[in-house]
Design a protein around this nucleic acid. Structure first.
Lengths: 122, 122
DNA sequence: CATATATGTAGACATGCATCGACATAACGG
DNA sequence: CCGTTATGTCGATGCATGTCTACATATATG
């Protein structure tokens, strides 16, 4: 209904002008679009995954886990060359984003990529 | 060869211990893993895409373009409720990351999602 | 129990970056 | 031409966050 006019050629402002609707009047509609997107249930998880992968070290961790399977914290620390505190912080971020799983075995924490560890536009 | 021992069960440090190789000696190997990942040709573009999508407004822009097809800057500005300078900055980031295409039509810049606008672990 | 190793947590510090106002540029319309 | 609209660019600013050291906890080993 409201979509009809806009989708007909994807010529937003031009079409608004042609149909006599001034620009200001259509702003609430566009604001509604933005709010609807942000409230989408898939939006927040997708944003969390994007934020988690948006760091060079965390993306490298994910790539390492994809190649070598399960790895423990000390191995990741050696691979990245950072402090263990940094590794622990990064694994917490990746875990809360649902990208990696963690299991304890003795002194070591073994991390692995969860199935579906990728990002699509919500 | 070197991989063999590690991949056999994915029990890194434990196996190193059992085979008599002390932990310190294996550090260069792990560092090599990290360097190899970061030098992968697909790594830098993937990181750029992740960084581009790691902002709430930019992820919302991508989602809006996915739903409504081509949109112009002023429509995105209305949808997000931010200044036009912010929209311009975000579109620049998304464009440099290869996620969005831009074409000029009269006064308006029309943006659209590029095919393959998603993120996989490199 | 004492020690060493592996990891988690807290706080401090520095860098990155999202945002905006102000100005510049481009394109259409009078 | 001159004004309006849409967008790009620049500099400043405030907040988010990646990193570290220091300390705490957990587990295995002597």
């Amino acid at each position: 209904m409201m979509q009809r006019a806009r989708r007909a050629g994807a010529l937003g402002p031009r079409l608004e002008r042609l149909t006599g609707t001034d620009g200001a009047a259509c702003l609430p509609k566009y604001a509604g679009w933005g709010r609807a997107i942000a409230r989408e249930p898939a939006f927040a998880p997708a944003l969390a995954r994007a934020k988690a992968l948006a760091d060079g070290h965390r993306l490298a961790i994910a790539a390492l886990l994809r190649r070598h399977g399960e790895l423990c914290g000390c191995e990741l620390q050696a691979a990245l060359g950072v402090s263990h505190a940094t590794v622990s912080h990064h694994m917490s971020v990746l875990g809360k984003a649902g990208l990696v799983s963690a299991r304890r075995q003795g002194k070591w924490m073994y991390y692995a990529l969860r199935p579906g560890a990728f990002l699509e536009i919500p």
